Computed example of a mutant assay.
Amino acid sequence: MNCRFVCCHECDEICTIPHPTPPGRYRCPNCGHVIFRHWPDMTERIYATNLAALFLFVLINYFPLLSFEVLGNRAEATFTTAVLYLYQEGDYLIAVAVLMTTLIVPLIRILLNLALFGPLYHGRLPRYAPTAMKLLEAFGPWGMLDVFMIGILVSIVKLVKMGTIVPGISLWAFAVLIPILAYGQAIFDPHPVWEEIEKAQREGRIPSPTERIA
């Protein structure tokens, strides 16, 4: 069995990993940090989870998030109206931050995963795979749906004493979307994708960095 080398993200130790890599969790022998978890069917799982996430994302933005009724007056709120209310109140930076972290960035990540792992699922590596991987890494820290969910729960607890709150379809879809995205992020291992990219670059199926510079 051949070996490949992986650099530990914590201590920079060069670790040897058997190749082909058996399923399991691999730790750095120096510091014990988990280098990565190998899932043989990672492509299929990530493709399926992001298809489900895209469907839920459409539901979240189409149906009401919750309904609030006080003295017979009823109002419905959606994700987009929440951003609009913040903007109308003059909280421009907060409105932009909520828009980016709860709508734009999560949608971009879902579409990038589908654009990358969809072709991989069908046995084809797209030419834009290196760019997609770099964008996924760049947008990773900006997805904060779980933080927004906590804010919604806190707001519901505070408002429940003032009137009647009815959770909408969007809220339930949002509650399902968070663990699905978390699961997809937990099983994501960039190593086999980068290995496939390097192999394709050596074979000339996709341009190498030196060719793009030239």
Results as ranks from 00 to 15, higher is better:
residue 167 P to A: 03
residue 167 P to M: 03
residue 167 P to E: 12
residue 167 P to Y: 06
residue 168 G to C: 10
residue 168 G to E: 12
residue 168 G to K: 11
residue 168 G to N: 09
residue 169 I to H: 07
residue 169 I to W: 12
residue 169 I to S: 02
residue 170 S to L: 03
residue 170 S to C: 04
residue 170 S to F: 09
residue 172 W to T: 08
residue 173 A to K: 05
residue 173 A to I: 12
residue 173 A to G: 15
residue 174 F to S: 00
residue 175 A to M: 15
residue 175 A to N: 03
residue 176 V to C: 07
residue 177 L to I: 10
residue 177 L to G: 11
residue 177 L to A: 10
residue 179 P to N: 08
residue 180 I to C: 08
residue 181 L to M: 15
residue 182 A to V: 00
residue 182 A to G: 14
residue 182 A to K: 15
residue 182 A to P: 02
residue 183 Y to C: 03
residue 183 Y to P: 07
residue 183 Y to R: 00
residue 183 Y to K: 10
residue 184 G to M: 08
residue 184 G to A: 02
residue 185 Q to D: 15
residue 186 A to E: 06
residue 186 A to K: 13
residue 186 A to V: 00
residue 186 A to Y: 13
residue 186 A to L: 07
residue 186 A to S: 12
residue 186 A to H: 13
residue 187 I to K: 08
residue 188 F to W: 12
residue 188 F to T: 08
residue 189 D to T: 02
residue 189 D to W: 00
residue 189 D to P: 01
residue 190 P to G: 03
residue 190 P to V: 09
residue 191 H to G: 04
residue 192 P to F: 05
residue 192 P to T: 00
residue 192 P to M: 01
residue 193 V to G: 09
residue 193 V to I: 15
residue 193 V to T: 15
residue 193 V to R: 05
residue 193 V to C: 06
residue 193 V to A: 10
residue 196 E to S: 10
residue 197 I to V: 14
residue 198 E to V: 07
residue 198 E to C: 02
residue 199 K to F: 02
residue 199 K to V: 05
residue 200 A to V: 00
residue 200 A to H: 11
residue 200 A to F: 05
residue 201 Q to S: 06
residue 201 Q to I: 01
residue 202 R to A: 12
residue 202 R to F: 06
residue 202 R to H: 14
residue 203 E to N: 10
residue 203 E to R: 12
residue 203 E to P: 06
residue 204 G to C: 04
residue 205 R to E: 10
residue 205 R to D: 07
residue 206 I to F: 02
residue 207 P to W: 12
residue 208 S to Y: 02
residue 208 S to M: 09
residue 208 S to G: 14
residue 208 S to V: 08
residue 208 S to D: 13
